[in-house]
């Protein structure tokens, strides 16, 4: 009796999960299938599921319609550069917030939390003006520097640094480790689950970011992938959906690859955390 109830409940659970999964996967699937269709097939009604013939040249058209290699490289530089900067600023900030007692700590941390709530759209104008003062508009620096410190990252890391037992840090001090060394050889490895989570979040966010590069760049040398893809649309009058979807595939592929290869680490990171 209880067994039957349990099985029924499990079935419901699985159905719900499958439904949610489908909602998430469907757009990707549609993008994937559309990327291989011919133009007439894209506009066909009722739509076909499976491409009638697989049009690999859509990718070629997308790739050769602009300096896509530059776009990819720029996107990578920007996303990776931001992440490195965010860690260089965030780790010491979080360590100080978590472990030091100093005047104004609460107030400063409060300010950090407020920064968490301000979207880029609110502050882009003054930042743009500043960047243009420094002559950085239309360089990769204008894409990297404004994101060099992450309130979210500081918040997450602080939480995880606070969990480290005092004695471990004291043992390291007795082992003659400098504060800098304690930070990077003791605290950071212990915060690995949080770092992996935050790293993925930040990298994906900036890899996909459309708004900021749109404002800060106006030449192909510094454009990033999302802008390049949106320009496919502009160039082709918004009609060649199959080519645009092929471009989008190029955009998401690296991220899917990261997930694919990092999966084991991501899972183990979370398992470690919940232990």
């Amino acid at each position: 009796m209880r067994q039957a109830g349990l099985t029924a409940w499990k079935t419901v659970e699985w159905l719900l999960l499958a439904a949610v999964g489908l909602i998430f996967v469907f757009p990707f699937l549609w993008m994937f299938l559309t990327a291989f269709k011919t133009m007439p097939e894209v506009y066909q009604f009722p739509p076909t599921w499976w491409p009638e013939s697989w049009q690999f040249q859509n990718f070629e058209i997308a790739w050769s319609s602009g300096p896509f290699l530059t776009y990819v490289w720029n996107s990578f530089l920007v996303a990776a550069g931001i992440l490195v900067l965010q860690l260089l600023t965030g780790v010491p900030a979080a360590y100080a917030f978590a472990r030091y007692r100093f005047r104004g700590r609460e107030a400063l941390f409060g300010l950090t939390l407020i920064a968490l709530m301000i979207p880029a759209q609110v502050i882009f104008l003054p930042v743009y003006v500043e960047m243009s003062h420094w002559g950085l508009v239309n360089t990769l620096w204008a894409l990297i520097l404004p994101y060099g410190a992450s309130a979210f990252g500081i918040f997450l890391l602080r939480q995880s640094f606070m969990q480290v037992p005092d004695e471990v840090i004291e043992a390291a001090r007795l082992d003659n480790a400098s504060e800098w060394k304690i930070m990077w050889t003791i605290m950071v490895p212990m915060a690995k689950p949080v770092l992996v989570t935050f790293g993925l979040f930040s990298f994906i966010y900036h890899w996909n970011d459309y708004f900021w590069p749109l404002i800060m760049t106006n030449s192909n040398e510094v454009r990033t992938l999302p802008i390049g893809i949106s320009m496919l649309k502009a160039a082709e009058g918004g009609k060649l959906w199959n080519v645009i979807m092929a471009g989008n595939m190029i955009l998401v592929l690296p991220i899917l690859a990261i997930f694919f290869f990092a999966q084991r680490h991501i899972i183990s990171a979370f398992v470690y955390q919940s232990k």
Partner: peptide, 8 residues
Amino acid sequence: NYALYPTM
């Protein structure tokens, strides 16, 4: 509580 470095 030993205070070993757990990641090492």
